[in-house]
Nucleic acid binder design. Structure first.
Lengths: 341, 341
DNA sequence: AGTGGTCGCTAAACTGATTTAGCAGAGCAT
DNA sequence: ATGCTCTGCTAAATCAGTTTAGCGACCACT
């Protein structure tokens, strides 16, 4: 790769100047006293030779690589990871940086390896990303340089970027209240583990808190709360069936994520109920399926692209120490309507 | 990042030997005549200092960075990209390599920039990935070194890795024939653009060809073929409705991808038909939704993880010049049954 | 005439590794 | 005693940049 690239020495020779002069001109150093003509000659020579600096050589001296490590537990299993990466990629490009991506698969050995691999390559900083919003402890090895936590927080008070799940909870509840839903709102997706262990999830508790807070303020109580061991369609399906077997039918269902809502749709369809005429449904995440469902599903979007972007900004431009909360926009879609009759 | 790292000189000093000796011992060079005791001392010193070589310095000399560029058009918009990357990441790790990921967003300027950025960093090779299987022309700039095309082919005969869509077409048709479906099989997702322009898609034509070939051999003809301008749920929905409006009802539907099938499910549900008792459905891709649908959707899986892996193997280990076809396994699920009565 | 300052530029050191060329000493034969 | 080979190791060059220190020419001022 990159055989026959012109070097700085080549440029200097062609311009009839020293490497020093060429280096200074090309780096646009202030305060140098090189003549305008020298500038011309260097630029012309560089242009003509198609000169591009060898960043390995440069970083040996400057200890800057213009490279950021993106270390995450799992990139593949969620379709959100791509957005996180894309946002980071965009922001990095704008700052002339590039991303070295590694995955730990939640395995300590792999993690150790991944971190050594990126540190050996002298990255300028590390974005340590989790695929589920949670609290975690950062491996000591990366604390030697700038670190930003992405979709995670840590007890060490490192800079971090997380979605505003509590705000999303408020948006969801507010949307239903505004439509006139009151005491017939059901919630699907309660989960003790997710709610109580911040190392498993921060989202569950925050979403619940946001919902509760808003409903409390309106003096409205939940009609029912269904617990689910996982947030998968089959659990949403089962929860909805159990919900419908009770005497009081809900006017609206809040699902803790879109996959649960997907299951809920299936159960509602089988029960002959139509969304939103009989029951409104709203949820969290804005998974691609939310827009594909019939009727399309109202949900609050995980702002993953924004978050990835923000992480790079924090890392390179510095900024706030307290967790950076990225708002989750509400996507109003067809699954919302005022309560029936 | 990485302040205070011990250098080779530190190790040599501590071992009471020269940098040369230390370098040779640590690299396990054959044919050197350093004593067993010298080996001991170097290893001990390196261990004690926690020495890790500075790869920027090494690669300046060796012109190897143990880094691969992964350049793709779009990583974010498809949930498959993650699998492609994960496979590549795994294979790279096994070979002590790391991935530098960039995205071109299909924009020529960004592409130019991305390629310069990775070449400046002296990557050992480039994986050039497309998110839709298609034919493309590789930018000349990366032809100076090893290149592998991932999910794409090029007219230049570069090594490439693509899914075996034709084989998938045969699997799908065979599965239906084995269940006893004959002349009442409908196909949803014909698309002239995708079928005729290899720069748009290679999958559509190959899938169609595989299906046709198998049906022809069994002397079976398609009951109907629906064209769709895009392969999205709404188009599958519309196509299925038009299909059901005709007098002859199909016993099975082949959808060109899972999103079309998702739309088909919705239309079938509304028409009061049940899958698979009334109509079998089978498709391509193995999108996560395929397993979430009720009944779960039989489909042929895009082997993205395998493909990512294969690309790295081809790049680093060398190998076949003709396109490497990765099989698409058939996922037999609940949406298949023998034709009704 | 000597001193000091500015201008325009360069030599050489430096980054941290690998690699080439070769040196000192021991052992052996002549 | 000399020459030769082999052993065990090292000095120095090299990779492609950045950075420090400073050199020679010219001018102005006392």
């Amino acid at each position: 790769m990159g055989r026959n690239r012109a070097t700085l020495a080549d440029v200097a020779r062609k311009a009839g100047l020293s490497k020093t002069a060429a280096s200074m001109v090309l780096n646009g150093r202030e305060g140098t006293r090189l003549s305008a003509e020298a500038h011309q000659r260097v630029f012309a020579a560089a242009e003509e030779l198609g000169y591009r600096p060898n960043l390995a050589a440069r970083s040996l001296r400057t200890r800057k690589t213009a490279t950021i490590a993106f270390v995450s537990d799992i990139v593949a299993t969620t379709r959100f990871a791509g957005d996180l990466i894309r946002g980071a990629l965009d922001a990095a490009r704008e700052r002339d940086h590039v991303l070295l991506i590694t995955e730990t698969q939640g395995d300590a050995t792999f993690e150790q390896y991944a971190i050594e691999a990126v540190l050996d390559r002298q990255v300028d900083g590390v974005i340590y990303a989790a695929m589920a919003t949670r609290r975690l402890t950062v491996p000591a090895a990366i604390l030697g340089g700038p670190v930003v936590l992405l979709n995670a927080t840590s007890p060490d008070g490192l800079p971090s970027v997380v979605p505003d799940d509590e705000g999303a909870g408020r948006s969801v509840a507010t949307a239903l209240l505004e439509l006139g839903h009151r005491d017939a709102i059901a919630l699907i997706g309660r989960n003790r583990l997710k709610e109580d262990d911040p190392e498993v999830s921060l989202a569950a508790r925050a979403r619940l808190h946001g919902i509760r807070q808003t409903l409390d303020e309106a003096k409205v109580g939940l009609l029912a709360e269904c617990f689910c061991t996982e947030w998968l369609p089959e659990h949403g399906y089962a929860a909805t069936r159990s919900l419908l077997s009770k005497p009081e039918r809900p006017s609206a269902i809040i699902c803790m994520n879109d996959r649960l809502a997907f299951g809920a749709y299936q159960a509602l369809g089988e029960a002959g109920l139509t969304v939103p005429e009989d029951i409104s449904v709203i949820s969290f995440d804005d998974d691609p399926i939310a827009a594909w469902l019939r009727p399309s599903l109202a949900t609050t979007a995980l702002p993953h692209e924004q978050m990835g972007r923000r992480a790079v900004e924090l890392l390179l431009d510095g900024g706030a120490v307290e967790p950076s909360l990225v708002p989750m926009p509400l996507r109003r879609r067809q699954s919302l309507a005022p309560p029936a009759g």
